[in-house]
């Protein structure tokens, strides 16, 4: 069964900080939902999976250069920017 420790681990993988209260609530709910998912144990294994419903294979277009968004437009929604670049958090502590 999915434990509170599992919930913290999942939240860490998903990069979502959660409180103790949230962890407890999510644990109960996720256990409930995942046990419902177990209905799939009945499904036969010997079936091809369908990744995609349309019979499309690699769709290519001509590699023609075209106008793209300007740097200002691209940066317009960013809170942190410097010298025409996005500014992100430190990767190495």
């Amino acid at each position: 069964m999915l434990t509170i420790a599992d919930v913290y681990k999942i939240a860490e993988l998903a990069k979502i900080e959660i409180t103790k209260e949230e962890a407890e609530k999510f644990q109960k709910e996720l256990v409930n939902i995942v046990s419902y998912f177990n209905v799939l144990d009945e499904v036969e294994e010997d079936v091809e999976p369908t990744f995609h419903v349309l019979p499309l294979r690699n769709v290519f277009r001509e590699d023609v250069p075209e106008e793209s968004l300007s740097r200002d437009e691209v940066l317009a929604n960013a809170r942190h920017r410097e010298n025409g670049y996005f500014k992100g958090p430190k990767i190495v502590e």
Partner: peptide, 16 residues
Amino acid sequence: DGVRYGFALDNLDSWT
């Protein structure tokens, strides 16, 4: 991720 667009915090802090 709060970097290119969307909700962001004032302090960038560390990555994780």
